[in-house]
C-alpha cells in the first residue's frame, strides 16, 4: 500500500511542533521590541505622572475602547478559522479569515481617523502646538505615536499574512491535516492583540 510511503514523506518534511516553537521564539523577540518601549513608557510615566495624566485626556477613550473590541473580535475570528479548518470546513475557514482581515482594516481606518483628529488639532511630532506643551506631554505623545504606529505596522503585516493564508487555503495548501502555517499566523495575530491589550489602558485609561 502507498500509505506507508506517504506517511514516510510527511515525516521527513514536517515538524509542526518545531514550527510552532520557531514562531514562539520569533514572538519573544517581538515581546522584547515592545517590552523596551513599555520600559521607556513606565520610566517617563513615573517621572511625569501629572503631565501624562493631562495628555491622556486628549485621547478619545470611546474610540480606543471601540478599537479594542474590534481587535479582540478579529482574534476570535482568527481562532475560529483554525477550528473550521480542523473540521475540514474550508469555505467557512476562508470566510473567517476574510472577516479577520476586514476587522483589521477597520481597526486601521479608525486609527487613521484618530490620528487625523490629533493632527488637525496640531498635535503631531515636532508641531508648534505640541512643542509649546510641557516636556512630559511631548514625551507622552511621542510614545503614543511611536508605539501605536509600530503596532499599526504589525497590524498591516498581519493583514498581509492572513491574506496569504486565505490564498493558500483556497489553493489547498492549508488543509484539515496540515494547517500549521495558519496556526502560526494566528499566533502572530494574537500577539498583536495582546500588545494592544496593554497599549489601550496605558494610553487611554490613565486619566
Amino acid at each position: 500500500m502507498s500509505t506507508n510511503e506517504s506517511t514516510l514523506v510527511e515525516h521527513v518534511h514536517r515538524d509542526d511542533v518545531g514550527s510552532r516553537m520557531g514562531m514562539w521564539l520569533f514572538l519573544f523577540t517581538e515581546l522584547l521590541l515592545f517590552g523596551g518601549m513599555f520600559l521607556l513608557y513606565s520610566v517617563y510615566k513615573f517621572q511625569y505622572p501629572d503631565e501624562f495624566f493631562l495628555a491622556a485626556k486628549e485621547l478619545n477613550t470611546i474610540m480606543g475602547a471601540f478599537n479594542t473590541a474590534v481587535l479582540l473580535t478579529s482574534s476570535l475570528t482568527m481562532a475560529l478559522s483554525i477550528v473550521a479548518i480542523q473540521r475540514n470546513q474550508k469555505v467557512l475557514s476562508m470566510l473567517l479569515q476574510m472577516v479577520t482581515i476586514f476587522l483589521a482594516l477597520f481597526f486601521l481606518v479608525n486609527k487613521y481617523f484618530e490620528w487625523s483628529a490629533k493632527f488637525s488639532h496640531g498635535i503631531y511630532p515636532g508641531s508648534e502646538e505640541l512643542l509649546s506643551k510641557s516636556s512630559g506631554e511631548i514625551l507622552f505623545f511621542g510614545l503614543y505615536y511611536v508605539m501605536t504606529g509600530l503596532h499599526g505596522i504589525h497590524v498591516l503585516v498581519g493583514i498581509f499574512l492572513i491574506a496569504v493564508m486565505t490564498r493558500m487555503t483556497r489553493m489547498g495548501k492549508i488543509t484539515h491535516d496540515n494547517y500549521v502555517r495558519l496556526e502560526n499566523t494566528g499566533l502572530y495575530w494574537h500577539l498583536v492583540d495582546i500588545i494592544w491589550i496593554f497599549l489601550f489602558p496605558l494610553f487611554y485609561l490613565i486619566t
Binding site: 476570535l76 496556526e183 499566533l187 494574537h190 491589550i197 489601550f200 489602558p201 485609561l205
Partner: peptide, 18 residues
Amino acid sequence: ALIIASFKAYLVLTIFMH
C-alpha cells in the same frame, strides 16, 4: 487597569494561542 490587562493577556495566551 494593568491587572485587568494581564488577565486578558492570560486568556489570550492560554486559550487563543493554545
